[in-house]
Amino acid sequence: MKLVIENVKKRFDKKEVLKGIDFEFEKGKIYGLLGRNGAGKTTLFNCLNEVLEVDEGSFYLVEDKQKRPMEDEDIGYVLSTPNVPEFLTGREFLKFFIDINEEHITNLKSIDEYFELMKISEEDRDKLLKDYSHGMKNKMQMLVNIIMSPKVLLLDEPLTSFDVVVAEEMKNLLRSIKKDHIIIFSTHIMELALDLCDEIVVLNKGVLKPIEPDRKSEKAFKEKIMASLMEE
């Protein structure tokens, strides 16, 4: 399976943010999306998630050599800001998503097992989400997307608000699910990108460019990424 992006362009008023994105993301890999503030990472995600309409170009999935458009079930998007319905408890929130998506979920676990996975303590599970901390809300958001297990998973700076223990577990979790998914992961932390991601892609000046890994030394690779980020 592949996610193919062809010549996607997006502008706000006069400002051209995406100037023709061409890329193929493949299943089984975690892509690290790097870019300066305002480079357009979130915009690209919003386009793929069809919250924003693209001005030009298209994107689609290729499965068994068959082109097909992305369906709602194919995509999950974890925003950098927490987005959870404040009137539900954590448990109810998970139950709702499991309920409405039962037929698509493989190897369903119990709700408590999912909480376990995210290290959300028992006393917090039946509290309203509005009383969760920032990081806990983010965990819930991430958890729902992992349970739904969409083919394409977009993560916009997701690990920044997690405590170190959970961040480490999330990394392992992402590694363990990557073989069936296309995971695109935007981050500002280069170490994290190098540690977790199989491919590094840089978004600069409105275009997406893969950075060939430098087998010889990590330092040289880092410098290459930096150079590409800073290109004017």
Partner: peptide, 14 residues
């Protein structure tokens, strides 16, 4: 209180 956050989940938009 509800749709603002729920609409960010693509599955909610089916």
């Amino acid at each position: 209180n509800c749709d603002h956050s729920m609409l960010t989940y693509r599955i909610y938009r089916t």
